[in-house]
Design a protein around this nucleic acid. Sequence first.
DNA 1: CTAGATGTTGCAAGA
DNA 2: CTCTTGCAACATCTA
Length: 519
Amino acid sequence: MSKEPYSVIHWFRRGLRLHDNAALLEALKPINDGDRFILRPVYIIDPWYKANVKCGQNRTRFLLQSLQDLDNSLRKLGSSLYVARGDPVEVFEKLFTKWEVKKITWEVNTEPYARERDRKVSSVAKMLKVKVTECDGHTLYNLDFLLSKNNGNVPLTQQKFTSLVTSIGHPAKPQKAPECLKKFAPSSEVEKELELPSHDEFYLDESASGKCLFPGGETEALKRLEEKICFENAKWVREFEKPLTSPNSLEPSTTVLSPYVTHGCLSSRTFYWKLFDVYEGAKHSKPPVSLKGQLFWREFFYTVGAHTENFDKMVGNKICRQIPWESNEEKLNAWKNSQTGFPFIDAVMTQLREEGWIHHLARHSVACFLTRGDFWQSWEKGKEVFEEYLLDHDWSLNAGNWMWMSASAFFHHYYRVYSPVAFGKKTDPTGAYIRKYLPQLEKFPNEFIYEPWKAPLSVQKDLGVIIGVDYPKPIVDHGTASKQNITKMKAAFAAASKAKAQNDADFSPPSKKKSKLLE
DNA sequence: CTAGATGTTGCAAGA
DNA sequence: CTCTTGCAACATCTA
């Protein structure tokens, strides 16, 4: 008998899907025509993530469900997912030899750790004569290509970015999932020693995770896409304007496709072209507020994130205004654990911790509150809390949006402060949302639901809920705190522009003034 | 050079 | 209920 043919690995990292997976399709192309080879779909549980990225129960469950779904889908096609543990460099060093690997493919990941990791794996592959093929697919466009089309400048406004992608034209159309993988299966017995991770291995405690409102996986992702972006829903899709959607409706007012796009269960290009189908020939809203605009926002933060050093930090980050934030554990914990005494803020943070998804404008409210609005805490601290709890946590989007909301970058109107009382009232005057997430306040009359500390003590006693005992008093007076913070912001902005002017003078080429003197 | 317009999504008060 | 305005007012681009 001839020996086993060589192997080709497709390494799943994000991109946990079979549809529109360019790198997976690339893995199915023979190195030489007529080659017979074995496809090895691999996922690696890399301890670096456990050590360096905060990941709460809900997102852990989402990832596990996504892996289970991926394995199911692969099995239906005659393949299966091989889950390995350890540092990818060490894992591949062993697997390349063991399986006689000649090629490995993966989807581009532009986050700092992933880049470094992929660089190391590439050099091991080169040493062991394994061909590496990296394919786009997580974003609509190749991010280096976008930068080159913008003359090497990082676009810093959405308007700039929109005109850039508009001048480029549509992104690539999505590719179909492979139909059958049987001919790539190992002829001998399938390797069984490494299986899908168990709940224990992922430190997943079902009792500690919340209701599963958004199950992970490509199957769910495509189902949700069909439900939301379809002709039956055409009016809603075409008229969608993000700022007009509600942050505190009891059912999400937006698509909640973000967790699926983040994990790559849903291809952003599949999303884009599905929107195109529903838009086609009809009047529809436009970026930045439209649904397509939401994909552009994602692409925008990815582009800036991929090309800005220390993008997720304040210090050493060129685009981030340096602001003397305070570090107060008590305030941070009150915010994180819904103990600020502002029901709207506390309700949003409860929804975040329990369910893992909150509306974009709810994120704005709590982010503004923690940073420039009320608590004057660093956006990096808030970013870590979102990192822990969000199902759709995404390195680029999280850092970018926190800088935005804290007026550290992109956004400069620091005097526009969200009110923790007034903002929610606009879309939910009776406080149904607060009652759902803070049941201890359920019986408060509408007039006090956003400001329970204003209810007369007699009312509090009748309800059996004493503010300051059963629910906290507000930690700060919003009026006073926000005014003080606006003043601090004014000073920080002035210092920053002074520093910028100094820097420009130091590093700019000879000024016109000097040139004139030379003439 | 200056002035004016614009930037995905503020609030409160008053017509 | 919708619209306008004052609040105190940034950075950036264009004319």
